[in-house]
C-alpha cells in the first residue's frame, strides 16, 4: 500500500460518506432548491417579468436563469459542507479523521468534493427545471461548466471555514443569512449592474458573486457586465486564498483541537 493509494482510499471514503449523507436526505437537500426556483420562474419570470420587458437584449425570464441556477449551486455547496463538517465537530466524530494518518489536504479535498457534488446535482436539477420555463440556447458549454464547478468549489471552501469557526448551530446560519444571501441578491442575479447609478456600479464590483453570476451568464447567454478574464481570475484567486486559509486552520487545529 503506497502512501498515495492510501490517501486516495481515504479521499474516496470521505467523499462517498458525504455523498451518501445528502442523497439519503434528498427531500431536504435536493428538492427544496428545485421548488424555490420554480417559484422564482413563475413569479418573477412569468407574472412580473412579462411586464419588465427586455434586459441586455433578453426576455427577463431568460436573463435571470443563469443567476438562479448559480444561486442554487452557491447555497447548496456552502450549506452541505458547513452543516456536515460542523455536525462532525458537534458529535465529535471528526476525531475519527484526526486520529487517522490522513493529511489535512485530503480531508479538505474530501469535504469540498462532497460540497461540489451536491452543488452540481442541485445545479443539474435546477437547470432541467429551467428548460420547462425557458428556451435558452447554451452559448458555451466549456465556460458554463467551468464556472459551475469553480463556484461550487469556492463556496464549499467558504462553508468549511464557517464550520471551523462555528460553535453552535446558530453560528452556521449567521453567515448565510447576513452575508451570503445579501451578496447573492446584490450580485446581479435579477438585474444588470448597468442599470445602477455609477457609484453603485463601482460598489457592486467589490462583490465576488457578481463575477461568478456574470461569468455564468456569459456561458449560457453570451452576455456579461464584466470581462471574462477578470471574472475568472478573481474566482480563481478567491479559491486559492480560501484553500490556503482552510489548510492553515486545519494544520493549527483551530476549532477542532485543544
Amino acid at each position: 500500500m503506497t502512501r498515495y493509494s492510501r490517501y486516495l482510499t481515504a479521499f474516496q471514503t470521505i467523499f462517498t460518506k458525504e455523498l451518501l449523507r445528502f442523497t439519503r436526505i434528498w427531500l431536504q437537500t435536493i428538492l427544496p432548491p428545485v421548488i424555490t426556483t420554480v417559484l422564482y420562474y413563475i413569479i418573477f419570470g412569468n407574472l412580473i417579468g412579462s411586464r419588465i420587458g427586455e434586459m441586455d437584449g433578453f426576455s427577463y425570464i431568460d436573463f435571470i436563469v443563469p443567476g438562479l441556477i448559480l444561486m442554487a449551486v452557491i447555497t447548496n455547496s456552502y450549506s452541505n459542507v458547513v452543516s456536515s463538517f460542523f455536525s462532525s465537530k458537534f458529535q465529535r466524530h471528526v476525531e475519527e479523521l484526526i486520529i487517522s494518518p490522513v493529511p489535512n489536504w485530503v480531508i479538505l479535498a474530501g469535504y469540498v468534493a462532497g460540497g461540489v457534488a451536491r452543488g452540481v446535482m442541485v445545479g443539474i436539477a435546477v437547470t432541467s427545471v429551467s428548460l420547462f420555463f425557458t428556451d435558452i440556447q447554451v452559448q458555451s458549454y466549456g465556460w458554463t461548466l467551468t464556472v459551475f464547478i469553480l463556484t461550487a468549489i469556492l463556496f464549499s471552501l467558504a462553508g468549511f471555514i464557517n464550520a471551523v469557526y462555528a460553535n453552535s448551530f446558530d453560528d452556521i446560519s449567521i453567515v448565510p443569512t447576513f452575508i451570503l444571501t445579501p451578496l447573492t441578491y446584490l450580485g446581479g442575479v435579477f438585474y444588470s449592474i448597468s442599470m445602477l447609478p455609477e457609484f453603485w456600479q463601482q460598489v457592486s464590483l467589490a462583490n465576488p458573486i457578481l463575477y461568478m453570476v456574470n461569468a455564468f451568464r456569459y456561458g449560457l447567454l453570451g452576455v456579461s457586465d464584466i470581462p471574462m478574464g477578470v471574472a475568472l481570475g478573481i474566482v480563481v484567486l478567491f479559491i486559492v486564498a480560501l484553500t490556503g486559509f482552510s489548510l492553515y486552520l486545519l494544520n493549527r487545529g483551530i476549532g477542532i483541537k485543544n
Partner: peptide, 8 residues
C-alpha cells in the same frame, strides 16, 4: 469508514 481513513 474508519478503515477507509487508514487507507484500507
Amino acid at each position: 469508514n474508519q478503515a477507509g481513513f487508514y487507507g484500507i
